[in-house]
Amino acid sequence: MWNGRDDGKEIIHKRLFKCLDKTSKTKLLGFCSSLGVERNKGRIGSENAPLKIREFMANFAIHDDFSFDDLGNISEFSDLESADEMLYEKVLNSLKNNEYCVILGGGHESSLAPIKALLDSKKSVGVINFDAHFDVRIQDLHTSGNSFYKAYEYAKENNYKFNYLCLGASSLSNTKALFNTMDKMGAKYVLDYEFDKSFDVLKDFLNANDYIYLSIDIDVFSLSIAPGVSAPAVFGINLKQIIPLLNLIFDSKKLLLSDICEFNPLYDFDNHTARLSAFLAYYLLRKEKLYEI
């Protein structure tokens, strides 16, 4: 999975594929599933994303001593429930070892198991989701459209603290019923056309929560830069809008887990979405300011 241009062994030629280190506390884990997307009647293909993202991350130039460990992919399973259990165990083990893990989805079903693991570990979580969709459908089975409602239910059943913030949501992609569910959950949101309000809302959210889970659904971006997703956004946001918010999250020192999801290579154009997803995955791995905007 990790190959790239090799211009020499000197440190000045270092690229990401040369940064693998089993002892690193920064972990990468692929979750190769679009079963939740299929259940949610979306466009399948996101199970191919983890390998594609790695391919486009591999050649990034590295200017310091950064290292990370790749835990491989969760890809052999018979159904979403068994896949969720495997992901939960992997992530819980990382948390017990005080490791920071970035999960490469997969559909947005990728978020539920890690959030449950964090809830069981810390009894509290503030979930930040950059997404055109709230993903709080009330459904019996786990799908890509209800991970955050399922996490809310799990927290409620176990008397855990759960707070949810969705940034970049589209009013065209969420029914009135979903807005009502967000209100029922006590969740907060900022819509795509008012995204400039996000900084202050996010700052208050970070102050109110001790442990943060971060999810980036690639469909939060405009389809002009992210065509390869399960459900493209006509309006959407751009990189310059999200980078200051990611920097704010990193500065809080509260981020324990993160994921990227809904990149669908089958619908990409000239690898635009692959490159965007790879950039964001690397940004999450670093968990520090790389760009000041």
Rank of each mutant, 00 (worst) to 15 (best):
K188R: 09
S224T: 15
L223S: 15
I225Y: 07
L248N: 03
V229T: 12
I260Y: 03
N247K: 01
L246S: 10
F205A: 05
I216K: 00
N238R: 05
F199H: 11
I218P: 00
V229W: 01
L214T: 01
V234T: 14
F195V: 10
Y213A: 02
G228P: 05
L202A: 06
S230E: 07
S215H: 01
Y211M: 02
E262Y: 03
I216E: 00
Y211N: 13
F199I: 09
E262D: 11
L248P: 00
P244G: 09
I218Y: 00
F263N: 02
L256S: 14
L255C: 13
I237C: 03
N209C: 06
V190P: 00
A231Q: 07
F205Y: 05
Q241P: 02
L257P: 04
P227C: 11
K188N: 12
V234A: 15
G228S: 09
N247W: 06
D192H: 09
D192C: 08
K240P: 00
D251K: 15
K203E: 15
G236W: 01
N238E: 07
D251H: 14
L245P: 06
L257Y: 13
Y213V: 03
S222V: 05
V234C: 05
A231T: 15
S258V: 07
D210V: 04
I243H: 01
F205N: 06
F199Y: 14
F250A: 05
F250D: 03
L245C: 10
N238F: 10
I212W: 08
I260A: 02
K240I: 13
Y213D: 01
